Simulated assay, not measured.
Amino acid sequence: MRKFLVIVDDTPECEVALVYAGRRAERTGSSVIALCIAATSEFQHWLGVENLMREEAEAEAQEMLDRVLAKVADRMPDDPERKVVIGHRVDGIRQAIADNPEIVVLVLGAASGSEGPGPLVSAIAGGQSGGYPIPITIVPGGLTEEQIEAIV
């Protein structure tokens, strides 16, 4: 089954990207993967401390998935698959795509403020966009439900 990968964080544009991907998946017979990337420090002096830090980072990522997915649940046709990756955001996205050949589109939400599209969109859509093996859809964070319906 084809899957749309959406990066989950605490931004409003993430919610718009999830709704867009959910509607698009519904119309194309696909599904959605909600990916949260938990960053950890490079602290590796003591294995026990590193393991504890990884566990805490994963728990925080699961809580973020719970929080964000609860906000959009009534606007999504189906519950997305949930995935947590520990590490650097761009590397985590690449790894998720490499691990799952059913992922066919990466969906990102762009911030609608004057400060730019956001660090993730800037990093991925900038010089690295050609390095992804799948298309990248950037959804404007200010889209309304009606606008999403009109374009999916």
Results as ranks from 00 to 15, higher is better:
Q62F: 11
T40Y: 07
H45C: 09
Y132F: 13
I37R: 08
E145A: 09
V6Q: 04
I37P: 13
R23L: 03
E149R: 08
D91A: 15
L52E: 13
P101R: 12
K83H: 12
L18N: 02
A57S: 11
E146N: 08
V8N: 02
A59Q: 15
T40G: 05
V121I: 04
D78C: 10
V68T: 09
G130C: 04
G113S: 14
E56P: 07
E81I: 09
T28N: 04
M53T: 07
R89A: 15
T144R: 05
S41M: 15
L65Y: 05
A110P: 00
R24P: 00
S129C: 05
I103S: 03
V152G: 02
I151P: 01
L108K: 00
I86L: 12
R67F: 10
T40C: 07
A57F: 06
H45W: 12
R24W: 00
S112L: 10
G142E: 13
S31A: 13
T28V: 08
N100L: 09
R75E: 14
R94V: 02
D66T: 07
A38V: 03
G116A: 03
I7D: 04
I134L: 06
P117V: 02
I103K: 00
I7S: 10
A21G: 03
I86K: 07
V104M: 14
V16Q: 00
R23D: 02
S129D: 02
K71V: 02
N100A: 10
I86M: 07
I124A: 02
S114H: 13
E149K: 14
F43D: 08
N51R: 15
G109S: 06
A73N: 12
R2S: 14
R23E: 03
P133L: 01
S41T: 15
I138Y: 04
R94S: 07
A61R: 14
I7K: 08
E81V: 09
A123V: 01
E15G: 04
H45A: 12
M1Y: 11
R54V: 06
V16N: 01
N51T: 13
V68H: 02
P101Y: 00
I103Y: 01
F43H: 13
I138V: 11
S30Y: 06
V68K: 03
A17Y: 01
I33T: 10
G141T: 05
I93K: 04
D79V: 15
V152C: 05
G22K: 00
V6H: 00
V107C: 10
F4C: 06
V8M: 02
I86Q: 06
E55A: 14
L143W: 02
D78N: 15
E55L: 12
W46P: 03
V104T: 15
Q128T: 09
K3P: 09
E13R: 04
D99H: 12
G87E: 12
N100D: 15
S31R: 13
